Amino acid sequence: MTELWLMFSAAFLAATLLPGGSEFLLVALLNDNKSFWEALLIMATIGNTLGAITSYYLGYLGRFAISPEEMSKGKYKHGMDLIQRYGYWALLLAWVPIIGDLLCLFAGWMRLAFFPSVLMIFIGKLARYFAIVMLVWYW
């Protein structure tokens, strides 16, 4: 049970704007005991998705602090262009380190529909963790 809570916590924190990764912990826990891979997969995915929702909500609140003109220039331009071009489908890339956190933040800032956004975030993160589990399982 401690392993699952640890996995959830690490995945949650890794999905926020804080630095860190949960993949190494997942691999270590799987190498220790492969029999509960399903529970680890679920906890990692849910924790990481909830962390991304936190970033989405921070972006939603950030709209009060940063003007649209500021967001459409400079360092934010590429992420904003991705969200404007692909909408919530861009959130399938929410699992990508650094970029994914910003995509979630921008999605909230742009007030993309919440449930389709969460669904895309969940699918992307589930696919990433499932790929890691399969690599460990068959390696």
Rank of each mutant, 00 (worst) to 15 (best):
114 F>H: 11
135 L>A: 13
102 L>H: 14
31 N>R: 05
47 G>I: 04
53 I>T: 03
67 S>D: 15
29 L>M: 11
63 R>S: 05
38 E>G: 10
17 L>Q: 10
58 L>M: 05
136 V>Y: 02
38 E>L: 15
96 V>K: 08
139 W>A: 12
94 A>P: 04
2 T>W: 15
115 F>P: 00
101 D>H: 10
108 G>V: 06
112 L>N: 07
125 K>H: 03
102 L>C: 14
67 S>E: 15
136 V>C: 03
108 G>Q: 02
80 M>A: 07
47 G>C: 15
21 G>S: 03
91 L>A: 01
37 W>L: 08
22 S>W: 04
60 Y>F: 02
49 T>R: 04
84 Q>S: 12
132 I>Y: 02
62 G>R: 12
13 L>E: 05
103 L>W: 03
7 M>C: 08
92 L>G: 02
60 Y>C: 00
40 L>F: 08
102 L>V: 14
82 L>M: 15
117 S>Y: 00
122 F>G: 01
82 L>H: 13
138 Y>D: 08
23 E>L: 15
75 K>Q: 10
128 R>C: 11
91 L>Q: 03
134 M>N: 06
3 E>G: 11
106 F>L: 10
121 I>E: 05
77 K>R: 15
48 N>P: 04
41 L>G: 06
19 P>E: 09
27 V>C: 00
119 L>G: 04
12 F>K: 11
125 K>P: 04
76 Y>N: 09
51 G>H: 13
133 V>G: 01
38 E>I: 15
52 A>Q: 03
30 L>E: 01
101 D>P: 05
38 E>Q: 15
71 M>K: 07
136 V>I: 10
51 G>Y: 12
107 A>D: 01
43 M>H: 05
94 A>Y: 13
99 I>D: 04
29 L>R: 15
103 L>T: 00
13 L>K: 09
107 A>N: 08
54 T>Y: 11
51 G>M: 05
29 L>C: 11
134 M>F: 13
104 C>N: 10
65 A>Y: 12
133 V>W: 00
129 Y>D: 00
4 L>A: 08
103 L>E: 06
9 S>F: 13
35 S>F: 10
125 K>G: 10
5 W>D: 04
41 L>S: 11
17 L>Y: 11
32 D>W: 06
127 A>C: 07
85 R>E: 11
13 L>W: 13
109 W>M: 02
67 S>V: 12
125 K>R: 09
113 A>P: 02
137 W>Y: 14
80 M>L: 06
73 K>H: 06
78 H>P: 13
48 N>G: 02
23 E>I: 11
38 E>K: 15
39 A>N: 14
119 L>T: 05
6 L>V: 13
81 D>L: 14
71 M>Q: 04
14 A>C: 04
119 L>K: 00
11 A>W: 09
59 G>I: 07
3 E>T: 12
35 S>P: 07
